[in-house]
Each structure stands twice: as structure tokens, then as C-alpha cells.
Computed example of a mutant assay.
Amino acid sequence: MNADTIAAHNFEHHLQHNPYPGRGLVIGRSSVDETWLIIYWIMGRSANSRNRQFIAEGSTLRTEPVDAALVDDPSLIIYEAMLALPFLYLVSNGDQTRTIYEALKTGGSFDGALARREREPDAPHYTPRISGMLDLRRSPGAVTLNILKANPLDPTNTDRFTYRPATPIPGFGFGLTTYQGEGNPLPSFSGDPLLLPCTGSAEAVLDTYWNALNEDNRISLAVKQISAQDGTSKILLRNRFTA
């Protein structure tokens, strides 16, 4: 199969026809201009998970309660999802975004930062932590992805996987989600990062991914558009629930 067929198959089976892939991220390149795209979304089934929305402030994307009075436990649902350093762009599904940011800021590494973190402590699901970094310090740019997930034999231990795929060609990206689909407990994502489409402008990609996610479970989705020339960025977002 060629890249178009593989990406379309992954998109259809893992996102479009999957009621609960959970949170997800994709780092790729637009098919229509010289920009990189970082896609991040959240889904939720519980009242606590659904009581949140995305807020964009400059190059930072964070989650925020829709109604602060209804927050049960903020520890795993309120965090900075996207942060940036000069020509380095981070995305994750938890407060490890800040861990990576602080490590890089002081001369540390992506891998070193995540070596200090574990999968989420939300038994029995033990939700994976998924993280990504786009490095534009050298052309054409490099993608790094990581997943921390519970060891299947002993979920108190964390299995650690870092991926450094070749730079995607325009129109494609690589992605991770927290889950394979529905289940009890929810099954962790399995396998290598998915090749996924990044067809069209940032606005078109936002629409494509939002429309693909399960209508009952999707909460918020954001696309950060990043210039490959000077590193400037902007964030487009969509929230299901608003105050």
C-alpha cells in the first residue's frame, strides 16, 4: 500500500470508526503550504472529563474547566497541552508537557525528562502519557514521539517507547492516541505511531479531524500551525462545551 492508502486506512479505522481512541496527537506537514501542523484533541465520558475546554494564549494551549465549581479532581484533566521554546514545539496529554519544557530550557533532553515520569495513576485504565516534540532548529525539521504505558504483566511498572520517524512528506503526519478503543478497562494504544493525513490548510485539517471524532465523546480539538521559515505559530481550536 502507498502512503495515501495507509494514512486513509489508519484515519478511518482508528479515528473515524472508533468511538473512543481517547486523547490524541499528530505532528505533520500541511499539503498546501510551507507549514507544520501539531494536532491535539481530548475526549471524555465522565462528567469530570467533559467539564473542560481548550484555551489558547500565544503559543500555549491549555485546558480549563468550563465550570470550576464542578471540578472533582483537576490533577489529570487541567494542564498545558502545548508549550514552545525557540524552534522547539511540545505537545502532550498531561502535565509532562511542563516537565519536558523545563528540562529542555535548562539543557536537558526530551527522553531524560520523560524518564522521570510514569503512566497516569488512574487504575484500572492506567492511561498512557503521550508526548511529542517538533524540532525546527535544523531543516526540514524532526519529529519525536513518546508513549509511557502500563506494563501488561504488572501495571505498577511503566513501559517506555520513544519514536523518531523520518520527516514526513507534506500532507502526512505521525500520531499517537491513548487508547485502542472502548473496553473495561480501556485498552492502551498498541504498536508504532500511526501514519495519518494532514491534507489541506490548518482550517481544513481542524474540520477533518473534528468531524472524524465520535460526536458523543469529543470535547476539544486544536491545530497549531507553525511556519517552517521563521517558527511563528498560531493556534486554531474548537470546543464542544462552552461556559
Rank of each mutant, 00 (worst) to 15 (best):
residue 212 A to Y: 04
residue 216 D to F: 14
residue 110 F to W: 07
residue 150 A to C: 06
residue 186 L to N: 00
residue 94 G to Y: 03
residue 109 S to K: 09
residue 234 K to C: 13
residue 164 R to S: 14
residue 156 T to N: 11
residue 92 S to W: 01
residue 22 G to D: 04
residue 135 D to I: 05
residue 30 S to M: 01
residue 195 L to A: 00
residue 237 L to E: 07
residue 203 E to A: 15
residue 138 R to W: 01
residue 100 I to Y: 04
residue 174 F to T: 04
residue 208 T to P: 03
residue 86 P to A: 08
residue 164 R to W: 06
residue 152 P to K: 06
residue 201 S to E: 07
residue 49 S to F: 07
residue 56 A to W: 02
residue 197 P to Q: 07
residue 127 T to E: 04
residue 33 D to K: 11
residue 196 L to C: 08
residue 204 A to V: 12
residue 77 I to A: 04
residue 126 Y to K: 02
residue 93 N to L: 05
residue 180 Q to W: 09
residue 208 T to G: 03
residue 17 H to A: 15
residue 178 T to P: 01
residue 138 R to L: 12
residue 179 Y to A: 04
residue 120 E to C: 03
residue 24 G to P: 02
residue 52 R to V: 07
residue 61 L to D: 07
residue 10 N to R: 07
residue 177 T to S: 09
residue 82 M to Q: 13
residue 54 F to D: 04
residue 1 M to H: 12
residue 101 Y to M: 09
residue 2 N to I: 09
residue 223 V to R: 00
residue 124 P to K: 02
residue 92 S to F: 05
residue 90 L to V: 08
residue 234 K to E: 15
residue 2 N to L: 08
residue 39 I to P: 00
residue 32 V to G: 05
residue 172 F to R: 01
residue 56 A to H: 09
residue 27 I to V: 09
residue 137 R to K: 11
residue 33 D to L: 07
residue 59 S to D: 14
residue 183 G to I: 05
residue 147 I to C: 01
residue 151 N to T: 08
residue 66 V to Q: 06
residue 141 G to K: 10
residue 102 E to A: 13
